[in-house]
Design a protein around this nucleic acid. Structure first.
Length: 470
RNA sequence: GUGGUUGUAGCUCAGCUGGUUAGAGCGUCGGUUUGUGGUACCGAAAGUCGCCGGUUCGAACCCGGUCUUCCACCCCA
């Protein structure tokens, strides 16, 4: 055998069963999106580099797949360097040694694979702002790419399923997104997920109260790790980032924050009494919580988690993250939030957006782990005609033609092998019905229909066969 | 990007301190059984031991590199 071909790391092939399972999830999510009034759009798999670069922080830039320019990119690059050397360099300084990776990258790569669906959506909104009726509710289900190092549930090509609203400040949107999460996971049979919610204004307010407003990012990154590394190490990290001892002691109530939504809110009110921004955040959370309490959730739990930070810098209000039911080891299976300024990056000010994302690939892994896929989702042909010979095959094909016109999937076993093999084939493909059309049926112009699950069979006319299979 | 880990038949895995022709179960294919399946029995095929190089009389096993897998960071869906 020749050397086996392979695919790049972090990518996967999907066999028919896997595609059926994934489509089941896609269809469920899509149905809920549409029930909630979202409309689909699609954007290209790659964008201009400048659209993506700098939108996800330095870490994000590193993870963006860059596309090499076509043509003789190196020849063109040499011309760029030649001009540089005339203007910028003098003497015997070799310009090739003075230029940096970023500079080179910029000149040999002008396109990049999309990293998420939110930034391309922001670009879409700004570009098409005159055609869009606001508030605009869109959903988008497409693959994204990250040059990350793969792990379980972490791929270099994976699907995101996003729903966002732009052009509405209303907190009812946040309420609806919590309901949407609940509806989708309930529809998938994935009961008991935890929808964690926080608010960027609260994080910002806390940072302000402890005198670390300029260190908001460092502060939230450290706080986010509380679950994982524990209170002491979080404090250590905050100290190492230059947050004062006095500030850290003011945080003490945060580490022991317990109880239900209302109790935690009351604690926060005490901590944030001097921060206008913090109080605003609390107000928003209360609104969302009251809405959900009144309307109710089907199977999900809404939980306030002040340590929830999320990396993306553009969130300004609510922050969401969805954790799989207890006992399943998996990173978050969904996330989202409110971003007041996102389209500002592309020059459209004062348009607020809020949205959530579902991680299809991780949801698939979780459903697989818990055995929650319905058994009936695998696509297979409904009826297989056993091949008994030339004349029988021709008669079978005539019947198959009629069945297909009726929208019934049917096929003929192509070879006249012994019946045991043909039956085995039907078993393996989980084909539910067989038709035996042999000599005796040809004589009487009938069809023997066999139900593979029950083993029952009956002799039918073509009309009866159609009815039986519909 | 940092540190570690993994790779043997289609799949799951054995393979002793380096020593003849690398094994098992499941699956596949053929037969008992070309008009009745999932069972049983018999038989067969299938591996440059991830890839490249090195050490050695001799390498699946030791060393280096590389790709891949998974894990912890980082970050995130």
């Amino acid at each position: 055998m020749a050397q086996k071909p392979s695919i790049p790391k972090g990518t996967r092939d999907f066999n028919p069963q896997e595609v059926a399972k994934r489509n089941y999830i896609f269809n469920t999510i899509r149905r809920e999106f549409e029930v909630f009034g979202f409309q689909p759009i699609e954007t290209p798999s790659f964008e201009n580099s400048e659209t993506l670069m700098g939108k996800y922080g330095d870490e994000g830039d590193r993870l963006i797949f860059k596309i090499l320019n076509s043509g003789d990119y190196f020849d063109k690059f040499k011309n760029v360097v030649k001009e540089l050397s005339d203007e910028t360099f003098s003497g015997d300084l070799n310009p090739f040694y003075a230029i940096e990776t970023n500079f080179v990258t910029k000149h040999i790569s002008e396109k990049a694979l999309r990293y998420d669906l939110t930034v391309p959506f922001a670009r879409y909104v700004v570009q098409h702002q005159n055609e869009i009726d606001f508030p605009f509710k869109r959903y988008q289900i497409q693959p994204v790419w990250r040059a990350d190092r793969p792990q379980k549930g972490r791929f270099r090509e994976f699907y995101q399923c996003d729903a966002d609203v732009v052009g509405s400040d209303s907190l009812w949107q946040e309420v609806e997104f919590v309901q949407l999460y609940d509806s989708v996971f309930t529809a998938l049979g994935l009961n008991g997920v935890t929808i964690k919610i926080n608010n960027r204004k609260i994080l910002s307010g806390i940072a302000e109260v402890i005198g670390a407003h300029d260190k908001l990012i460092d502060f939230t990154v450290a706080l986010d790790k509380l679950d994982k590394i524990g209170e002491e190490k979080v404090k250590d990290e905050m100290r190492s980032k230059g947050i004062s001892e006095e500030g850290i002691s003011k945080l003490q109530p945060l580490f022991t924050l317990k109880g239900d939504f209302g109790a935690q809110i009351n604690e926060l009110k005490a901590i944030l009494s001097t921060s206008e921004e913090g109080k605003k955040g609390i107000e928003e959370l209360e609104f969302i919580n009251q809405g959900i309490q009144t309307l109710g959730l089907k199977t999900a739990k809404l939980q306030l988690d002040v340590t929830l930070a999320r990396g993306l810098n553009y969130y300004t209000g609510a922050i969401f993250e969805v954790a799989a039911p207890e006992g399943v080891k998996m990173g978050s299976i969904g996330g989202g939030g409110r971003y007041d300024d996102l389209t500002g990056i592309f020059g459209l000010k004062n348009v607020s957006g809020v949205g959530i994302s579902f991680g299809l690939d991780r949801i698939a892994l979780v459903l697989e782990d818990l055995g929650l896929f319905p058994e009936t989702i695998t696509n297979t042909v409904k009826v297989l005609f056993i091949n008994f010979g030339q004349a029988e095959a021709m008669a079978s094909m005539k019947a198959i033609k009629v069945l297909r016109e009726q929208g019934i999937s049917a096929e003929l076993f192509p070879d006249q092998k012994n019946t045991k093999k043909q039956f085995n084939y039907a078993n393996k493909r989980q084909i539910p019905y067989l038709v035996l059309l042999g000599d005796s049926e040809l004589q009487s112009n009938t069809y023997t229909l066999k139900n593979m699950a029950s083993g029952e069979q009956q002799e039918l006319s073509l009309e009866q066969l159609i009815v039986a299979l519909q």
